[in-house]
Simulated assay, not measured.
Amino acid sequence: MNANVLRYSAFTTDPAGGNPAGVVLDARGMPEADMQRIAAEVGYSETAFLLPREDGTFEVRYFSPLAEVPFCGHATIAATVAHAEANGAGEKVLHTRAGRVRVQVDEQFTATLTSVEPRMAPLDPDDLDRLLAVLRWHRDELDPALAPAVAYAGAWHPIIAVSTRDRLARLDYDFDALSGLMAQRGWTTLNLIWRADADTFHARNPFPPGGVVEDPATGAAAAALGAYLAHNEALPADRVFRVHQGDDLGRPSRIGVTVPEDPREGIRVSGTAVRITDAANQAG
């Protein structure tokens, strides 16, 4: 089967920045095995496959090069901007494996997704020790104001905050060991953060379960971070913040996050996406 695979980079206006995603706007009738194969051939951290429904909503499947994932923020932004460019702005309702996600795309093709209801869980102290060991980090390098935890807004992400930008920049981890631990726990990415000021965070997201050393922009992790900050009463006064990600990879990304007064309504994640035009647009 041949599939028209578009390439978009999310959370950027520059095709050389952000996080690239594959997008198939109409995957109706496509076998799951073909989706997985195409995602592996595309080679991006995720490819999104839209399956339009008769009611105007969409089923969506997300595949990394190695496996299906229940939800992917940057591929959602990429896919809905791609669909809006082809069919017009407005609200897109997605039925993901994690639940129903609404996305509003404005006339400037900025997309804002509203996550599923977020959840929080403690990070087991033994798991924290294992994570620090594979990261080659030490407890005295962590931010004492932001305790490690695990958060969910469509996918589960451990969140570990460090006290300096320099520590975040020096990322060198044991890929196989982290991959094994994350597979055991069902974690999607590891969200490593540094708080620059009240409303600015820098993040890095190792993604070994997907066969990717690091994600340059992770919308699902940004949504989970919003839930985490709300739980810890650590949000800025207006409950809006920005995540800088990908800078250390040479692919700068900017992710906007808004947390409603009741986070159970869903965390809102905003960003732009731009088409990558210098890559082949066929796979399969």
Rank of each mutant, 00 (worst) to 15 (best):
W137Y: 15
T110M: 13
L128N: 06
R100N: 04
D124I: 09
L123P: 06
I77D: 07
A111N: 06
A153P: 11
A149Q: 13
A111D: 09
A149S: 14
A86Q: 15
L142V: 12
L123Y: 02
A75L: 03
Q108V: 02
V150A: 12
P122G: 10
D129F: 01
L146V: 13
R165C: 07
P125A: 09
T114V: 13
G90I: 08
D126R: 15
A133Q: 11
W137R: 14
L146K: 11
R119C: 10
P144R: 07
H74Q: 10
T110G: 03
I77S: 05
A98Q: 13
E117K: 08
A111H: 03
V103S: 04
T76K: 06
A89N: 13
T96M: 11
R136Q: 13
L128M: 11
P70M: 08
P70F: 06
V134A: 04
W137G: 01
V134W: 00
E141G: 10
Y152K: 01
V134N: 00
S163G: 14
D127S: 06
M120Y: 01
D127T: 13
R97G: 02
R165V: 10
I77E: 08
H157W: 08
D106C: 10
S163T: 14
G99V: 04
A86I: 02
H157Q: 11
T164F: 12
D127V: 15
T76R: 07
W137I: 01
L94R: 06
P70L: 10
T164Q: 14
L135A: 03
V105M: 07
V101P: 03
P70K: 09
G88C: 08
L113H: 02
Q104P: 01
A79E: 07
D143V: 09
V103E: 09
E107C: 11
N87H: 15
D129L: 08
E107H: 15
W156T: 02
W137A: 08
V150I: 12
I160H: 11
E85D: 05
C72R: 00
C72K: 00
P122M: 04
S115R: 01
V103M: 06
V81T: 07
E117Q: 14
H74W: 09
V105R: 04
L131E: 02
A145H: 15
E117H: 02
P158G: 11
F71R: 00
C72Q: 02
L131H: 03
A82S: 10
H74R: 08
V103K: 01
F71W: 00
L128W: 04
A145W: 12
